[in-house]
Design a protein around this nucleic acid. Structure first.
Length: 430
RNA sequence: GGGUGCGUAGCUCAGUGGCAGAGCUGUCGGCUGUUAACCGACCGGUCGCAGGUUCGAGUCCUGCCGUACCCGCCA
């Protein structure tokens, strides 16, 4: 007898198979027992008839609580009464461990309770679907860059210096020195891109931001491509093409998971090129037209962002932000030094910033001046300025927050559900 | 860093200053098409913590703790 997987149950129609998994929920109905079983690959309904199995077995399954581990053998039947289209008509089985009082019942629960039980909550159908979509997103990201000649060159997690101020850095002791956990792999990608042309890193990043919002984690995964010989337009083209690829990949391979989450698929189907693009100044003018004016020398906030993205059914690229509010490494607009060659990709439906990036300052003297202006120590950036000393070229890249992407694609409210064990300002466990 | 709301059974919640409640979970029994089943019974309480007002506080006041959401900042 072979063990089958629920995910590929259609191949076994008309056959007798054995499934190994857990009782997701069960409903006794007299001499019938309906078992919602999951095996990690999917969910299926098994029907146990008292007359068809050993009496002791029937009683054992009737007593077995939610999340008991079990083995079930039966005939795979096409059945329209089951949501999957297939049902297991049980002939034999075994309760491996009979569980009692599983805390996450099929009824309603609050977020604090669910997160305290994250190790068990991952077994629910909704979390199963989200983790599958996260996986497909990672697959899409890697495929995209690998198929286009990018070389994976991961940046270090321990770093000696801050690139955007120390208040958002996690500090740690490193053999007697102060070290920080990385909040971006970008500076190192600028080095690898000069060595290999097109590179990317993909790993966890850490930010000690005191942001308790539905869009923030203190530990999150970021993919950061960097290209030599690229200007702002190239970066925007890449961000656009990449986003379309990733969304369409999930849509193509993860339809069943999106349906489990009741995602409106039409909202994802329309994520196609071209994306609307507007400069920051154009965005401010548009906001004024929409009746939400903004001070053009001050960055606009999340309500402004939402108002802007509501105008479109696909992501919006906003470029050329005020230099004053952007990081030291960002290139100034040659046409206007008050504007920097940065770009944000704002996802629709109120999801907001998913990608941030731009063209980097490639002029040695300007970069050294910017480091001073930002009151950063030159010596910490000696290796970074070397990149402009030896064969500087126009270059750029961006970072995409994986969890924000997954949150948008899933159409869920909070990023904390998009990572197996979220780390937020007020949660370190489980 | 700023603002707002909520803490009552394992969970989700109701509770008018006057006897501590419901549904679900769990345990036991019943039921042949359920999928958050249903019917009957049982089990289940430091009303977040500390102080105050009052004849009397789950309920009103103060502080603390926890939690949720919004803003700022970002991906």
């Amino acid at each position: 007898m072979s063990h089958a997987q629920i995910a590929s149950i259609a191949q076994h129609e008309g056959q007798t198979v054995t499934l190994r998994g857990w009782i997701h929920n069960s409903t006794p109905r007299g001499k019938l027992l309906f078992i919602q079983m999951r095996d990690g690959s999917g969910f299926i309904q098994a029907v146990m008839r008292k007359q068809a199995v050993d009496e002791e077995l029937f009683e054992a399954f009737k007593r077995a609580g939610q999340e008991s581990s079990v083995e079930l053998t039966g005939l795979v039947k096409a059945d329209t009464r089951s949501k999957l289209g297939f049902e297991l008509s049980v002939t034999d089985g075994k309760v491996l461990q009979s569980a009692e009082g599983f805390p996450i019942t099929p009824k309603e629960h609050g977020p604090a309770f669910l997160h305290d039980n994250r190790h068990l909550w991952l077994r629910s159908k909704r979390q199963f679907a989200i983790m599958k979509i996260r996986h497909l997103s990672v697959q899409a990201i890697r495929n995209y860059f690998d198929e286009r000649g990018f070389t994976l060159c991961d940046s270090p997690v321990f770093t000696p210096n801050a690139c955007e101020g120390t208040t958002t850095l996690f500090a740690t002791e490193y053999f007697g020195q102060q070290a920080y956990l990385t909040q971006s792999g970008q500076l190192y990608q600028e080095a690898t891109a000069m060595a290999l042309g097109k590179t990317y890193c993909f790993g966890p990043t850490f930010r000690a931001e005191k942001s308790a919002t539905r869009r923030h984690l203190t530990e999150f995964w970021m993919v950061e491509p960097e290209l030599a010989f690229a200007d702002l337009d190239d970066i925007m083209d890449l961000a656009e093409d990449f986003t379309v690829y990733c969304v369409q990949h999930v849509l193509k391979h993860g339809r069943e998971y999106l349906e489990m989450l009741d995602r409106d698929l039409s909202k994802l189907e329309c994520i196609q090129k071209p994306f609307p693009r507007m400069s920051y100044d154009e965005a401010c003018a548009r906001l004024a037209e929409l009746g939400v004016p903004v001070d053009p020398e001050d960055d606009f906030g999340s309500p402004h962002e939402t108002e802007l993205t509501k105008q479109f059914d696909r992501p919006l690229l906003v470029h050329r932000f005020p230099t004053a509010i952007k990081a030291f490494y960002m290139k100034e607009d040659p046409d206007n030094p008050l504007r920097a060659m940065g770009v944000d990709l704002l996802a629709p439906e109120g999801y907001g910033e998913v990608i941030g990036g731009g063209q980097r300052e490639d002029d040695l003297d300007l970069l050294i001046r910017k480091i001073d202006e930002h009151e950063l120590p030159q010596e910490a950036f000696a290796w970074f300025t070397d990149l402009r000393r030896y064969g500087s070229v126009p270059h750029g890249g961006f970072g995409m927050g994986l969890e924000r992407f997954v949150c948008w694609v899933c159409g869920i409210r909070h990023v904390r559900e998009t990572i197996p064990f979220p780390r937020t300002i007020d949660r370190l466990t489980p």
